[in-house]
Write a protein that binds this DNA or RNA. Structure first.
Lengths: 217, 217
DNA sequence: TACAATTTTTAGCTTACCCTAAAAATATTT
DNA sequence: AAATATTTTTAGGGTAAGCTAAAAATTGTA
């Protein structure tokens, strides 16, 4: 499927476009389009005042762009809750369908869906659902990769890419589980986690960026 | 919003494209596009083998096109049930949102939604929901306009255009209500219905095409 | 500092939808 | 049957997305 404006905005947001400049290159990868297409779309979104652009540097969302991003994330995550809780999807299946539905949801529909679902705060991967007014509660979760050995923590939020969730499933990593970080291999080697039952799991350095945790001690 | 292929197919189906040839003119009206656009889209759908075309006559769905139409109607109507039963929409509010959602629903999603809703047979306006395999139960409902005075009947299905449903609401006509057709004004004048409680309502000739009933006696 | 590599931008073309205006075909009325 | 009206088609353009290939700018390295 060819991405549209909304997908670009969301991708920029997800790559840190709220606070930092996001490079074309990362958008090329995220959206699977050519570099030329990204340049062109940047131009369009710039003209609409949704982002600022520093040539050869990248783009950053304006408040207006940010609001659209928040709204999209809200829609996406509420649909994820619906798919998971009401239709019985596994947490690694919800992403693709939510991605379609989010673009086809009127604001009124989303507010009713929110009520129907009981105004949930988190999606199935622990992501915070932005409020109706576009504000998002900031959680002080830490990327697993930043922890020191010996730290006890609880898994709070994970990236929602299908393949990544399958990886975690395979590793038996779930939201809410508690672990100790036993060891960190140098040179971006894997991290060894030990669950409270004593089981050990290896998590790659790259994956450790996508797992957010709450430090227990 | 600009209609896409799917909207054309659905519109052709809804104008009788299963059995009759549908004119460009009626599609122009239904989709609010120019005549040139209809001609052009006909060409595209023809090339894909979804319809047959008789120049200056109109188009008709092929089995392949028909299957797509059935699938779309299934998606549309299941979403209507969801919006009405789960999200508390009134029956005259469901159409627009269902129209968006139907294009953003994977087949897998729809089957899960169907189960979640309890495999409903009818949408909120009494429309039959096509089966998974694309077949549709044929109901022998009669358009109100074809009845003779004195006939007793029950309202079974109505057209789902927002404005029409508002008209019916205004007239206090609801699915399941029983009436007698008291009088038919000549020259396409209104029809007088009398409810079982004795209340009389006037229904326009044009509206009487869009109300399907089951004859009681 | 200069050359090489990478990244971004520009140029030019494609597709799927849209449109208006004019030409062609069909249908209706006189 | 001819003239008029309606409908459909063709011709020529437009916009929003995409692409490749080449040029320009920046960044990294020797």
């Amino acid at each position: 499927m060819t991405p549209n404006k909304e997908d670009y905005i969301k991708a920029i947001y997800e790559h840190g476009g709220e606070n930092d400049v996001v490079t074309n290159k990362s958008l090329v990868k995220a959206l699977s389009v050519s570099a030329a297409s990204v340049t062109e779309m940047n131009g369009r979104l710039l003209k609409e005042g949704l982002l600022t652009h520093t040539p050869y540097q990248g783009v950053r969302l304006t408040p207006k762009g940010l609001q659209i991003a928040h709204k999209l994330i809200r829609k996406h995550r509420l649909w994820e809750v619906f798919l998971s809780e009401k239709l019985g999807y596994d947490w690694n299946e919800v992403h693709a369908d939510a991605d379609l539905l989010e673009h086809a949801s009127s604001d009124a529909l989303i507010e009713r869906l929110d009520l129907f679902l009981g105004e949930p705060q988190y999606d199935p991967h622990g992501g915070v659902i932005p409020n109706k007014d576009g504000t998002t509660e900031k959680l002080d979760h830490t990327p697993l990769v930043e922890l020191k050995t010996g730290t006890h923590f609880i898994i709070k939020e994970v990236n929602d890419q299908q393949e990544f969730l399958e990886y975690l499933l395979h590793k038996n990593v779930q939201l809410g589980n508690e672990y100790v970080l036993k060891e960190i291999e140098p040179y971006e080697g894997p991290l060894t986690l030990q669950s409270t039952e004593g089981l050990e799991t290896l998590i790659s350095h790259k994956a450790a960026f996508k797992i957010l945790v709450k430090i227990v001690s």
